[in-house]
Design a binder for these strands. Structure first.
Length: 108
DNA sequence: CTATTGACGGGGT
DNA sequence: CACCCCGCCAATA
């Protein structure tokens, strides 16, 4: 992807508050690149190990952690819990409650 | 150049 | 909940 895409996605991600979560699709939209949800995912996957970004606060549109069964997914759940985010027994987050920005996850 | 591949999304069964 | 299908679009093969 273009450097512009990466830059804008990162800028948005840096605004994602602790204790809140967002989705690949919403991040892409906020960055000005609608329909690029998959690319946000690829970008986060390419992040260097020590990147100081709240990548763990990004979930799929269904409120679930991506790439289930991987080390990264387990680690992500730990970081979210540490963040105060509640995960259901099936590992899903209530986006109506923790979703950010709120207006993107409001009911109705 | 065509084909395949995703940290995705939405709709249907 | 589980699948399946199709649209999406840049990177890779």
């Amino acid at each position: 992807m273009t450097a512009d895409f990466e830059k804008k996605v990162i800028v948005v991600l840096l605004r994602l508050p602790p204790g809140r979560v967002s989705t690949y699709g919403v991040l892409a939209q906020l960055a000005g690149y609608p329909r690029h949800a998959r690319h946000v995912g690829r970008l986060l996957g390419q992040l260097p190990a020590g990147a100081q970004l709240p990548w763990f606060r990004v979930l799929g549109a269904g409120g679930k952690v991506s790439r289930p069964g991987t080390e990264q997914a387990d680690w992500q759940r730990v970081l979210l819990e540490e963040d105060g985010v509640v995960l259901s027994s099936s590992g899903r987050v209530d986006l109506r409650r923790y979703g950010w920005p709120e207006e993107y996850f409001a009911l109705g």
